[in-house]
């Protein structure tokens, strides 16, 4: 395995990682992950360790392979090299729903709600609770009614957190854009995950909505004690929210560091602005 693509890190950063590692072993971990689309290496030698309860950002210019990384981490794509571990379990080749069962939930860059269903139903779908069986549902046994009631109650609780409680009866497709994004996050939370992957949550939001989102993300990481992995273009959001940042370009990791380190990293600036403007070689 070639080691050259792993960028150098600072002492401060390594100390931060040591601190996180002291709190528990990583929930999500990859080793030399890569995927090839017909000869094009979209992502290569991607290594990441997500510790419980941490806030981690992945940034990079357009087409750098950020969303591809998310698709690999959630089982939408099957990696052509490397390995994904959730806890100690090797997840290579598992279907997406297995990833959810193991505790990975995500939102999408282009919102993927169940647009003809109500807000409440959207969240109910995601709750992984098999409280009643198919047979009891078909026969209309009391377990079924009780299970449904319980599902509703839990879904309503989640909706209240995102101030969507009064909208439970609305068809999801008719919510305003910002609310739809919130609902998608609520739905992801309903799966009862350990790691939450947010793919450009602030895309298309106005500054007020972005601020609101910021406070929700903080609240989720505090109250639910989940690790959050964030892809974002909005630099201020990433710098404000994330404790550490991984930068990728052309499918390779070019920098790892704390936000303030990343902000003045030459390589990163070059990737975003082009070699000459950054005053490089």
């Amino acid at each position: 395995m070639k080691k050259m693509s792993v960028p150098e890190t600072t002492v401060l950063y390594r100390r931060y990682i040591e601190q996180m590692a002291a709190g528990g072993s990583p929930v999500l971990r990859t080793e030399g992950l890569g995927i090839t689309f017909g000869g094009l290496k979209a992502v290569q030698d991607f290594n990441i360790e997500v510790y419980p309860g941490e806030l981690l950002g992945i940034i990079g210019p357009n087409g750098a392979g950020k969303t591809t990384v998310f698709n690999l981490l959630t089982g939408v794509y099957r990696p052509s090299e490397g390995a994904i571990y959730i806890g100690d379990r090797l997840m290579n080749g598992s279907p997406p729903h297995r990833f959810v069962e193991m505790g990975i939930a995500r939102t999408f860059q282009n919102i993927r709600l169940f647009s003809s269903m109500t807000v409440l139903e959207n969240v109910m779908v995601a709750i992984r609770d098999h409280s009643y069986s198919l047979v009891s549902a078909l026969l209309g046994l009391p377990q079924c009614a009780r299970g449904e009631g319980e599902l509703r109650r839990r879904a309503m609780e989640l909706l209240e957190i995102f101030d969507l409680g009064d909208k439970w009866d609305t068809v999801a497709g008719s919510l305003p854009y910002g609310r739809q994004r919130m609902l998608e996050i609520a739905r992801a939370l309903a799966t009862g995950m350990k790691v939450l992957l947010l793919d450009e949550p602030a895309a298309g939001m106005n500054p007020v909505e972005t601020q609101e989102l910021l406070s929700y993300i903080g609240r989720i990481s505090r109250e639910f004690r989940v690790a959050i992995l964030l892809i974002e273009h909005d630099m201020s959001l990433v710098m404000n929210v994330c404790r550490r940042i991984q930068v990728i370009n052309f499918g390779e990791t070019i920098a790892l560091g704390l936000p303030e380190e990343i902000a003045c990293n030459k390589q990163v600036i070059r990737a975003y602005l082009g070699g000459d403007l950054a005053g490089g070689e």
Partner: peptide
């Protein structure tokens, strides 16, 4: 009964968005 239960709800979710449904653990 099938369509009113969580199973039917999952079926409708698949109709609305297959990738989204898989991301909900279906």
């Amino acid at each position: 009964k099938f369509m009113k239960s969580r199973f039917g709800r999952n079926v409708r979710a698949i109709r609305d968005d297959e990738i989204g449904a898989a991301a909900c653990g279906i």
